[in-house]
Design a binder for these strands. Structure first.
Lengths: 158, 158
DNA sequence: TATTGTTATACTCTATAACTATA
DNA sequence: TATAGTTATAGAGTATAACAATA
């Protein structure tokens, strides 16, 4: 079974297929949104509240300088806002503008519809099992990483 | 259902989690093998026969110049060989050295074992469903891309 | 004329570390 | 002294287009 999964997972993670799954989506995305800035947008959506570059970086697995650069692009495109943190004058809070939230909602809706169509003729329960399996996979590897990091005395982004 | 899948798939494709799933693996890989050169190695393994840079590029979703550059690295590391194509003097055939094949086999075995452990306590049939769902996802998006490309009169790598 | 692998160009993204401001 | 965001620097990877050799 491990071997079968290794092949299937490898295929999905392969650039060619990853790109295919998202390409149509991001091709239609407005200026400023690409494979690099998308995680920033989607991370902000997931967090749901204005967040610092460091916090957002931890969420999406990059460092604050990268987040800061991508935030520049998104801000220029009118999708992201910066505001001083009233609690800490060192911090800057990143948030989605209404336009940014709209763009994200549209992108996610498109992808969801696309996937819905894709699985429409799958056997009963298979799509649900796929989603469940994917969630478990991510949770498990996240758990493992957290354990290792805390054993090393590290935070999420060393 | 589309929305659920959108979330689960998005999480797996997120750099943070993609990286986690492969990080331990590639960290232990020998010199010359990283996230960029790995697809070349794994593509050659999948094709199973000595292949040109163009053919390999089509397989892994990149162009021949990229393949050529990565092949340089792998060749320097002793994992890949170049040989003249006896059928076509323009072509160069890329193949794995015995060492390269060994490295690939070890990497895939490690990942398979890792996944095997991960899914050991999953409910009956869930891991199989995950693998099946992933395969269908890749096949479907590959099919869609092929249809669109042939409608445009394009080959796999424009 | 078309296609092969390779490579030179310019460009982008990145990691790292420095910088300023605040805690 | 430590931490926030930002930014300058150098380096790596990329796409693109050119190149010489062969079909």
């Amino acid at each position: 079974m491990g071997h079968e999964l290794e092949q299937a997972l490898g295929a999905v993670l392969l650039r060619r297929n990853r790109t295919r799954l998202y390409k149509d989506l991001l091709d239609r995305a407005p200026e400023g949104v690409d494979e690099h800035t998308y995680p920033v947008l989607s991370g902000l959506t997931r967090l749901g509240v204005p967040s610092t570059a460091a916090a957002l970086g931890a969420e999406i697995g990059t460092d604050r300088s990268r987040v800061s650069r991508h935030a520049d692009r998104l801000q220029r495109a009118g999708l992201l806002d910066r505001a001083a943190d009233p609690r800490d004058a060192r911090a800057t809070l990143l948030s989605l503008t209404p336009k940014g939230a709209e763009v994200m909602a549209a992108l996610r809706r498109d992808l969801a519809e696309h996937l819905e169509t894709m699985v429409a003729d799958w056997p009963e329960g298979l799509a649900e099992a796929l989603a469940e399996g994917l969630r478990r996979l991510v949770d498990a590897s996240g758990e493992r990483t957290r354990q290792r990091d805390s054993a090393n005395g590290l935070r999420d982004s060393p």
